[in-house]
Amino acid sequence: MTSEKKPGKTARYGMTIDVDRCNGCGACMVACAVENNVPPAHEGATDRKGITWIRVFQVDNGEDYPNRRSAFVPVLCQQCGKDAPCVSVCPQQAVEVDPATGIVGQMPERCLGCRYCMVACPYHARYFNWWDPAWPAGMEKTLNPDVAPRMRGVVEKCNFCHGRWHAAKQLAAANGRAIEAVDYVPACVEACPTRAIQFGDLNRPESAPAQAAKNGASFRLLETIGTEPKIYYRSKKNWVRQISSAPKLGLGKESSRG
């Protein structure tokens, strides 16, 4: 469902994440879950069956104590800019790239729950609802009205806080103009205490991710497979940069979630 004749400016939202600043506190993970109405873990959920649109992985240089050095790498949907694997495999056309924002969108209503996209995603950034979303009694009052909770049996993932995008677009309309890239940031960006995550429009040369894209110390995850992700990582440490191209991706256990 895309249209060729698209008027106005288009954005290419992206992020830059400074791994050297991330202290692994997890603020982005909970802020994301609060914003996007992701429920707390079901009793049986583990790191394989849980839902974390953004997940901070602890990676290390592979050495033993006392030469072990660790770093924290937040991994979310990399918003592939080219040939997003999840789009092409979906039998339901439930995944699409918005040409106006570059955001890879997931439509839970269309999703069959076949999880083909989860297998296809090289970043393991997609999550399956193994259970109905449930909150402790009374806590459902704290849900965000801008995001619809998903049902059991569908796949979901990061969409750069699309609810915030909607609200920003609405606020811009109240001021009589169309939404601009600087009008909003996703919840993880706002919550990050160390400002390790920054958000912006890659089409604007002054934005943080556009600057990062030019920066030699920047890297993207699995660059060799040609998906052109829009999340740029940065680290001064050599071993961290190397981990980004390793097939293991530093994600510890190779995921067989779902």
């Binding site: 997890g26 992701v38 959920a45 901070v56 992985f57």
Partner: peptide, 15 residues
């Protein structure tokens, strides 16, 4: 602790 802290303690091994 909020039940949502399960994201850090149970659904990932961050903490």
């Amino acid at each position: 602790l909020s039940p949502l802290m399960s994201k850090l303690y149970q659904e990932s091994n961050l903490r």
